[in-house]
Design a protein around this nucleic acid. Structure first.
Length: 546
RNA sequence: GGCCCGUUGGUCAAGUGGUCAAGACGGCGCCCUUUCACGGCGCAAUCAUGGGUUCGACUCCCGUACGGGUCACCA
C-alpha cells in the first residue's frame, strides 16, 4: 500500500501501464535467426572510429540475417549535447555507407518502434519507473552531490567500494512517506534509485564475442531516473532494447562492468535479455606499448579525419573488416572482385583484444580499393572530395575533364593496374603534373647526366619528336638517342661495364620522365605524353634545351 | 584499491592437446622488366612469465608480471 502511495506521489501524471506500452510495440515478425540491433550514439558532436566499428558489426549481423538495423539517439545527457550533433552522426554514417532500416533521421523518425530519441521517450521510462516503485524496488533519494562525495571519501578511507549500497543507502531508503512529501514540498531534488540486493551471488552471461562473463551480482542502489526525470543509460538501455525488440546489443567493452546492473533490470522486469556483444577497444601504438586511442591526441580517432584525408568509405570498410574478422583478408584474396557485403561476417571470429589502428595498412588497402575502381568512378569521387576540401583542384578537374579522365586511365586497363592513388588528398599531389597550373619539378636529374648531356638529349629528342608515333616507334627513337650519347641500351651492360658508358637507358628515360612529370616515379612516358598533348610535351621538353 | 577483460613476429592475426606455429601489412634480398610501376619468389621475425595437469601444451588449471576497462544524476 505504501509503495502504491509513493508511486502516485512521485509519478502523479503517469496513467499508462506497462501493458499499455507493451501493446504498442509488438514482437517483430521476422524470419528465424533474424538479428535486430542498433547503434546508440550520443550527440556529442564527435563521431569516432569506434562508433563506425560497432556500427559495421551491427549493420552486418542484422542485414546478413534479414533483420533490422536502426539508429537510436542516446541523448539522455543534455549537458553534453552539442547543437547539430544528431545531424553530424547521421551524415557520417551515411557518408561511410552504413544504412539504417529505421530510427532517427535528419527529418524525424522512421519506424514503428519510436520515438528513437531517448529524451522523447521520457513518458515511457516513467511508466516503468512507476511500476518499479509500486513493486517496492525503487525509491526516491534526496542525497546531494556533497553528501555523496562525503560518503565516497569515507568509503575510500575505509578501503570500501564506493557507491550507494548497503548501509550507505539506509538513510535514503528509510525515509517515511511524510519525509518524502516534505522534501518534495520544500522543492528538494531527487533521483530514483534501484534497490540493490545484498548478496554474494554471481551472474553469468554468455557474450557472443567473449564467451562466458562472470561477475558479482549487482548490489548497488544505482540511479534509474535523474533529477530531471530523464533515465540514466542503464535504465534507458534496458527499457529501449526490450521495447524495440533488439535481439543483439553491440557495444564497447567499457560496458562490461555495468553489465550486472543491466542483468538485474532485465531480470526484475522478467524480460528476455538480448545477446550481448562486447567489442574490443581500438588501440594505438605509442613508444613501446599500446594505449587506447585518445580523442585529444589522436586525430585519426575522429571519423572526420578520414573524410578530410579523402580515404574512401570502401577502404575504411575493408580496413575495419580486416580488424573485425581475421579471415576477411583471405576471403578478399580469394574473391578479389567481390563486394565486401558478400563476405560472411561472424561474431565468433571477432578478436577480443584491442586492435591497433595501423594507418599504413589502411593506406595499402586504400590503394587496392582505388586501383580496382573504374576511372570514371575515381574521377567522380575525387572531384566530389575536392569540391569540399580542395577547391583549387576542383577547378582544375572541371577545367580539364577529358585530360583528367585520360590521366586516371593511364596504366589502369592493364591486367595489373598501377596503384598510384591512395587517398583523394594524395591524388591532388600525384596528379599535379598533368596540369601546367600545378606542374613542378621536384626530383633532381640523374647524376649520370651532366648539363651538356641533358641539353643534347632534349635537343635531339625534340628534333625527332613526332606526336603521332606509336609506342614502339617512339621508344626506338629514345633508344637511338640513348646510344648516340654513349649510354647503354641495357641496364645490365652498364652495371657490368660502368667504365664503357656514361650511364644506361634507365638514366635517359629518367631525364625524360622528370622533364615531363617533375619526378622519377611516374607512369609510362609515352602514355603520359599523349594525355598531356603535343603542345605541353614540347613546351616542357624545350625548357631543358638551353 | 575492488571487480572485470586481455597478453602469438614491428603491426593485424590464424590456431580450441600432437602444426616444420597459416596468411596479410611493413622491412630486407632476388627475379621479371626497354623506363616507372605492377607482379612473382625468398629471408629475418612471435606463443609475457613461473608452476602444475598430461605420453604430449600456444591451446586446460593456478600464481606472477604487464596492458586495458570500470567503479557518476556521462554515455
Amino acid at each position: 500500500m505504501n509503495n502504491i502511495e509513493l508511486a502516485n506521489l512521485l509519478f502523479p501524471d503517469v496513467t499508462l501501464t506497462p501493458e499499455d506500452i507493451e501493446a504498442k510495440y509488438p514482437q517483430r515478425q521476422l524470419p528465424d535467426g533474424a538479428c535486430v540491433t542498433r547503434i546508440g550514439p550520443s550527440p556529442t558532436g564527435f563521431v569516432h572510429l569506434g562508433n563506425l566499428y560497432n556500427a559495421i558489426i551491427g549493420e552486418r549481423i542484422s542485414h546478413q540475417s534479414n533483420g533490422v538495423f536502426f539508429l537510436r539517439i542516446e541523448d539522455t545527457d543534455n549537458k553534453r549535447e552539442v547543437e547539430g550533433a544528431v545531424e553530424t552522426v547521421i551524415n557520417a554514417m551515411n557518408y561511410f555507407g552504413v544504412h539504417f532500416d529505421e530510427g532517427a533521421t535528419a527529418t524525424g523518425d522512421n519506424g514503428a518502434y519510436g520515438p528513437y530519441r531517448q529524451r522523447q521517450r521520457k513518458d515511457i521510462y516513467q511508466v516503468f519507473a512507476k511500476q518499479l516503485t509500486e513493486r517496492g524496488l525503487a525509491y526516491p533519494c534526496f542525497l546531494t552531490a556533497e553528501e555523496i562525495d562525503e560518503i565516497r571519501e569515507q568509503q575510500t578511507a575505509n578501503k570500501e567500494n564506493p557507491g550507494i549500497y548497503g548501509k550507505y543507502a539506509l538513510k535514503s531508503r528509510s525515509l517515511s512517506i511524510d519525509d518524502i512529501k516534505n522534501n518534495i514540498a520544500e522543492g528538494k531534488e531527487w533521483v530514483l534509485r534501484f534497490k540493490g540486493v545484498e548478496t554474494d551471488e554471481y551472474i553469468c552471461v554468455e557474450d557472443a564475442v567473449r564467451g562466458k562473463l562472470q561477475m558479482p551480482r549487482n548490489n548497488m542502489d544505482f540511479v534509474l531516473l535523474k533529477s530531471d526525470g530523464i533515465p540514466t543509460y542503464h535504465f534507458a538501455h534496458v527499457v529501449d532494447d526490450h521495447l524495440m525488440r533488439s535481439t543483439h546489443v553491440v557495444r564497447g567493452e567499457e560496458w562490461i562492468s555495468s553489465l550486472p546492473m543491466h542483468v538485474e533490470l532485465f531480470n526484475t522486469f522478467g524480460w528476455d535479455m538480448p545477446v550481448y556483444c562486447h567489442t574490443a577497444t581500438l588501440m594505438k601504438i605509442e613508444g613501446t606499448g599500446k594505449r587506447k586511442l585518445s580523442k585529444r591526441k589522436d586525430p585519426e580517432l575522429a571519423l572526420s579525419y578520414y573524410q578530410q584525408e579523402g580515404i574512401s568509405p570502401d577502404a575504411i570498410w575493408e580496413f575495419l573488416l580486416t580488424l573485425l574478422n581475421s579471415n576477411f583478408e583471405e576471403w578478399r584474396i580469394a574473391n578479389p572482385e567481390a563486394d565486401y557485403h558478400d563476405f560472411p561476417y561472424t561474431l565468433a571470429k571477432m578478436n577480443i583484444s584491442g586492435a591497433l589502428v595501423d594507418l599504413d595498412k589502411l593506406r595499402n588497402i586504400s590503394k587496392d580499393v582505388i586501383g580496382a575502381m573504374p576511372a570514371q568512378k575515381i574521377f567522380d569521387n575525387w572531384l566530389k572530395w575536392c569540391e569540399e576540401y580542395n577547391t583549387e583542384y576542383a577547378v582544375l578537374i572541371k577545367k580539364y575533364p577529358q585530360r583528367t579522365l585520360d590521366a586516371l586511365n593511364v596504366g589502369r586497363n592493364a591486367k595489373k593496374p598501377r596503384k598510384d592513388l591512395e587517398t583523394w588528398k594524395q591524388a591532388c599531389d600525384f596528379m599535379s603534373f598533368y596540369y601546367d597550373e600545378t606542374f613542378e619539378i621536384t626530383d633532381e636529374m640523374p647524376q649520370e647526366c651532366d648539363e651538356e648531356t641533358i641539353k643534347a638529349f632534349f635537343t635531339k629528342y625534340l628534333e625527332s619528336y613526332n606526336h603521332d608515333d606509336d609506342s614502339n616507334a617512339w621508344f626506338e627513337k629514345v633508344r637511338a638517342i640513348t646510344e648516340e650519347l654513349g649510354f647503354a641500351l641495357r641496364p645490365k651492360d652498364y652495371k657490368n661495364n660502368p667504365e664503357q658508358y656514361k650511364g644506361s637507358i634507365v638514366h635517359t628515360t629518367n631525364m625524360l620522365r622528370i622533364a615531363l612529370t617533375g619526378r622519377a616515379n611516374a607512369p609510362d612516358i609515352w602514355e603520359v605524353s599523349h594525355v598531356l598533348g603535343e603542345d605541353i610535351v614540347k613546351n616542357r621538353i624545350s625548357k631543358h634545351c638551353n
